[in-house]
Design a protein around this nucleic acid. Structure first.
Lengths: 346, 346
DNA sequence: ATGAAAGCGCTAACAC
DNA sequence: GTGTTAGCGCTTTCAT
């Protein structure tokens, strides 16, 4: 019981395929009776148009691709969630691909998508990517592309970002406002823009509040892992026993820190406050629950698709692509790993 | 600079499209010189075949769909990770869709996939799904389908599962072997097979070790959330202060329990041992780290794709579908929320 | 060794 | 109102 085609319907009804096609689309120049007969028969046989044939003509697949560094990651899977749901509302399906933080894979995966003639691409750059010609080429060939989260301003296209610098500023500011005097920062791998932005946010916050910046208070986590946080916490407290605040690049690192401090009987937040970044699911399950920065992944995905859709439509209408940048606001999620904000002295 | 077509190449070279097509595919009956000329020109112009046209002829998209209840979930995103990577190896792309645990959505999403003429479907049932005709219909119409994790034996197709009963047995057994005498079980929503299987595993383990089964030790978490675990832990300890072991349906619930017991100054594992299920990322970050059951999501995804591929090939060759069931072994991940196994008394 | 032609299913311009 | 026809790009059979 394979699918019925337009041709078969037309044969059964003794009319032409074009009439059937038009009848199904409710064209105004088709006799109402004919329309009804066609539509009823189509329904009866569960007619659905052949997507290949439609695509071959329309040059559209109603499929888009999304390429992220890693799928198994709360932040990215939230983004994909948002993108898929928004896409579905507009009749688009989403192919998901991963670059595994590899430049070569990024190129390879993009090629797969382009070759499949999908309608557009949502992309978060791998940390290794420092050249962008592979992406520019795709855009120049007419493929709508939207960058999100891991972006570069060196590509001219729509972008959805959070302001890492601003967010890191807020995180550091929160530590300062809750009374921390000596704050360490655990940063990430050198290259990516996010690393630099978060570091800058930390630094600027210190400056803004007239606190000394001390290079030895910067620690680097290469893997951004729970284990890294655990180990670095030991090192930090050994080298700077008077630390009273730690701003970690990302939640798992912060949670590693938390665990180590607890094991070393260092009170959190009484002696040392900890703030993370990303609001991973688990951050609210720790004891004490982790204060962190919320990066609304779902919204990023949603917005990124909306920008893509705009250009999908522009392309259809022959208009040039837009290249606006949307910033999604972050917020400090205050939990128990930092102290209460002190009432200002009046 | 849009894409070059076979026809254009043939025109440039003054030969026919069929020759070009064959030359590109290295057919043996094409003159070597011609082949070289064609292949070089194709390379020069970056020729890639039009996927629609190919699909229209071959009836294949080289795209499969995967439908899961929720994407933002460590277990399911691991499965998808495995599926995507395995699919890519074999030249397939993967469309990801979610049913959000809704029967209606499951039907709707499956229809989207079928209408797109994708080659096959990997499916994990929603908890609400209790009728299976929508899936049987799809299979009967010739679509290769593989079920994984949330499955039913009432559908005849390949399946990849873990044995929840066996796993739950091991979990309970581990508690027993580490000296627990009165073990509570936090179960999940009533209907799904996994709930029943894990409950049965718990019950059978008690029987096997000659421990009394007590109905009042069964607690239900409707949302399987961290908060549920937190609240139920309070209730459990109030109603049964002499409990010394808790087997929770899933890690977040177990972690909620952990947090509550800690707040109530109940020592884990000294007074109460806790074992979770699923080995979520965060379970190794708690203090004490959570003992749990590892469900290897990546492998499930991989295996499910492999089974699908088998039937994709069977379909192409006109052979009937297979319907084997593959069981992926689970294991107890021993951490600090349960006591050390006691040496047997000799 | 090469090419002509048909056809996959659908759409739309154009004719009647 | 309805039908004819051409064509989207590719593959494959069958002639030559």
């Amino acid at each position: 019981m394979s699918k019925i085609t337009l041709k078969e319907i037309s044969k059964i009804l003794g009319i032409s395929t074009s009439t059937v096609s038009k009848a199904l689309k409710n064209y105004s120049d088709i006799n109402v009776d004919t329309k009804i007969r066609v539509q009823e028969l189509a329904k009866k046989h569960n007619y659905t148009p052949n997507a290949f044939a439609q695509s071959l003509r329309s040059r559209e697949t109603k499929i888009i691709g999304i390429l992220v560094p890693e799928l198994v990651h709360h932040f990215f899977s939230s983004i994909i969630d948002g993108a898929i749901n928004e896409a579905e509302k507009h009749g688009y399906l989403v192919i998901v691909l991963q670059s595994h933080e590899s430049y070569e894979d990024e190129i390879k995966q993009l090629k797969l998508l382009v070759d499949k003639n999908i309608d557009g691409i949502m992309l978060s750059l791998s940390d290794k990517t420092v050249k962008y010609d592979h992406i520019r080429t795709i855009i120049n060939e007419g493929m709508p592309v939207v960058l999100f989260d891991k972006i570069t301003h060196l590509i001219d296209c729509p972008k959805v970002i959070i302001d890492d610098r601003k967010a890191a500023f807020s995180a550091t500011e929160h530590l300062i406002k809750t009374g921390c005097k000596k704050i360490a920062h655990i940063t990430g791998p050198l290259k990516p823009k996010t690393t630099i932005d978060r570091f800058m946010g930390y630094k600027i916050a210190l400056e803004t509040y007239n606190m000394p910046f001390n290079k030895t208070l910067i620690y680097t986590s290469e893997n951004l892992s729970f284990e890294d946080g655990y180990n670095l916490a030991g090192q930090i407290m050994a080298e700077h026993p008077d630390i009273d605040g730690i701003f970690a690049f990302i939640d798992p690192v912060a949670i590693g820190v938390l665990k180590r401090l607890k094991e070393d009987k260092i009170k959190v937040p009484k002696q040392v406050s900890i703030i993370g970044f990303s609001n991973w699911f688990m951050s609210r399950t720790t004891s004490p629950a982790l204060t962190t920065i919320d990066q609304p992944g779902y919204q990023i995905g949603r917005n990124a698709f909306q920008l893509l859709l705009k250009n999908l439509n522009h392309k259809r209408e022959g208009k040039p692509f837009t290249s606006e940048t949307v910033e999604i606001p972050t917020s400090v999620i205050i939990r128990q790993s930092t102290r209460a904000i002190m009432a200002p002295v009046i």
